[in-house]
Nucleic acid binder design. Sequence first.
DNA 1: GACTCGTGGGA
DNA 2: TTCCCAAGAGT
Length: 320
Amino acid sequence: MPSTPPLDLDRLHHDITTWFTAEGRDLPWRSPQCSAWGVMVSEFMLQQTPVVRVLPVWEEWMRRWPDPAALAAEPSGEAVRAWGRLGYPRRALRLCEAARRIVEEHDGQVPSSPADLLALPGVGSYTAAAISCFAFGLPETVVDTNIRRVHARLISGHALPEPSHTAAEARLAAELMPATEDDGGTLACAWNAAVMELGALICTARSPRCGQCPVSGSCAWIARGKPEPHYTPKGQPWAGTDRQVRGAMMAVLRASDEPQQPEALLATGPAESGSGTDLDLAFQKLQTLPADVEQRSRCLAGLLVDGLAVESGAGITLPH
DNA sequence: GACTCGTGGGA
DNA sequence: TTCCCAAGAGT
């Protein structure tokens, strides 16, 4: 009967941060010369979107809007279009509004305290801690889905973290943080980044690479024989959902320079093959969705309410 | 607490 | 092919 190995925090800190130094990815927002704004933009884009898809969009975004003032001066529709296909386009809207608030309330400088960051639209507990830690070196406790999964396995011995973020998880994450007395938080920040990276590269949700894990010898989940999850994650339905219809409508608006008539966005049925432009393809995808007029109307109204689209006498466009 | 909100790549 | 799910936030 294998028992859970004793917990040696100092050794965990050392082993995981050492692994991170050697194996961590060289991401542009981790560069010492990356601005706090660059870190903030990356954190918005990385909310529920994988790194590989964020990379090219982040590069272009930072070239175009190198500081909050540059984005704040831009029509939000430009941000939504530049957001491209990252998904959850309301994040682009929130990032725009956050930039404007930073200009108005923080003299154009990204604030460093979690409290100030939390007050910004689109910034929740994770993003506030992450910006504070990764952009300013403050020893905040960062808890994201990767860190929760690593803690669940390494410490708690479960295959997966709880379905929803619990207070117990937050408490555990805080207890695992390195002390800040000696180095002022340098190790604490490295620890946050390292555990997150371990979860992203090794301790993955599906088929974790335990053979390459620097702390597999201390892992409670392995010691228990890798028990199955004690619950089954519920999937994210997609086909036929409002999100699918909204996404198809947004693709049309992103691809079009001219206002679109509501009737065109609500049209159903097989579309005659157009000339193959992005706009034609976006219209074809939208029109062939199995959604009735009622659902289409509801989705278009939702986009208008959310501010992802605006209606004028000329028709529907991205916001300006 | 339960839902909603996009997208596309890999298993 | 189908399913899973990824540096969450807001309601």
